[in-house]
Simulated assay, not measured.
Amino acid sequence: MDGAITFHPLTPDRFADLESLFGTSATTRNCWCVYWRQTWKEWNAGCGDDRREALRARVGAGPPPGILAYRDGEAIGWVQVTPRADVPRFNRARSAKPSPAETDLDAVWAISCFFLRKDARGQGLMTALTREACAFAARQGAQAVEAAPVTPHRPLTWDDGYVGIASALERAGFTLVEKRSERRSLLRWVP
């Protein structure tokens, strides 16, 4: 990666940095990393502005729901990392549901979303963000961190990689729990 990269938990004083980062993509301007947090009814009733305010409220309530990566003072990457209890739709998704089913959803955390600015992709930032997210979760008492990344079989579009890329997470120390489909696996990192 070119230039020094720093990492910071997303706190209310850094929300404007996330807004700036998410402003670079129509996908993130619509989602605001609440897809896994909301019910279908809530998701379908809302819009990008509603979702941004939902995430702002979540950030304000604490603890930080993820990590921002910075280069030269600008946010260039994001990873959402929270207790599984905070992302109920993630827990119900076929590719991401906990294994075993009786997993403690407060003790096991999930990495559920990534966003990297276009000019920061392909430089190892996803792996670095993953390492930072795991270290953060461990400091908060997480017993493990799980993810359900994609294993690409063709060039990715942005929407494909938002759950993470398996090889990047494996470089950060994640190991296979269970193959869920040809392209998706449940991976786990343990401190």
Rank of each mutant, 00 (worst) to 15 (best):
Ala135Asn: 10
Thr11Ala: 12
Trp40Arg: 13
Pro65Met: 03
Ala54Gln: 12
Ala120Lys: 05
Thr28Gly: 00
Lys41Cys: 02
Phe114Ile: 08
Val59Thr: 07
Val87Gln: 13
Leu156Cys: 10
Glu19Ala: 07
Gly173Ser: 11
Pro152His: 09
Phe15Trp: 11
Val163Arg: 10
Thr24Ser: 13
Asp119Trp: 01
Val150Glu: 10
Ala93Gly: 14
Thr6Lys: 04
Gly23Arg: 08
Leu105Phe: 02
Gln80Tyr: 00
Pro64Ser: 15
Cys31Gln: 11
Trp78Thr: 03
Gly23Ser: 08
Pro65Gln: 03
Lys41Tyr: 06
Phe136Pro: 00
Arg51His: 15
Trp78Glu: 07
Gly164Phe: 09
Gly46Ser: 15
Glu42Asn: 04
Ile111Thr: 11
Gly173Phe: 08
Ala54Val: 11
Gln123Trp: 01
Gly62Arg: 10
His8Ser: 15
Glu42Gly: 03
Ala148Phe: 04
Glu132Lys: 13
Trp189Ser: 07
Trp189Glu: 09
Ser167Met: 08
Gly48Asp: 06
Gly77Phe: 06
Met1Phe: 12
Cys134Thr: 14
Thr157Gln: 13
Gly141Asn: 08
Met126Ile: 03
Val177Arg: 07
Leu125Arg: 11
Pro98Lys: 05
Pro65Asn: 03
Asp72His: 12
Gly23His: 08
Ala101Leu: 13
Val34Ala: 02
Gly124Tyr: 14
Ile67Trp: 02
Pro155Cys: 04
Val34Thr: 15
Arg51Cys: 01
Val145Thr: 12
Trp36Met: 01
Gly46Asp: 09
Phe136Ala: 10
Glu182Tyr: 04
Pro64Asp: 12
Cys31His: 10
Pro83Asp: 11
Glu132Trp: 02
Gly77Met: 11
Glu170Asn: 01
Pro100Ser: 11
Ala120Glu: 07
Ala26Lys: 05
Val190Tyr: 00
Glu146Cys: 09
Pro12Asn: 09
Leu187Asp: 11
Thr151Trp: 03
Pro9Trp: 06
Phe114Asn: 04
Leu176Glu: 14
Val81Gln: 08
Val34Pro: 02
Ala101Lys: 14
Ile5Glu: 14
Pro88Ala: 09
Ala172Lys: 04
Arg29Tyr: 00
Lys179Ser: 15
Thr39Phe: 10
Glu146Pro: 00
Gly173Cys: 11
Glu102Val: 07
Arg71Val: 10
Ser112Gly: 09
Leu18Pro: 05
Cys31Glu: 13
Ala26Thr: 09
Phe90Gly: 01
Pro98Gly: 10
Thr27Ser: 08
Arg29Cys: 13
Trp32Arg: 08
Gly173Arg: 09
Gln80Ser: 15
Ile5Asn: 00
Arg37Ala: 14
Glu178Asp: 10
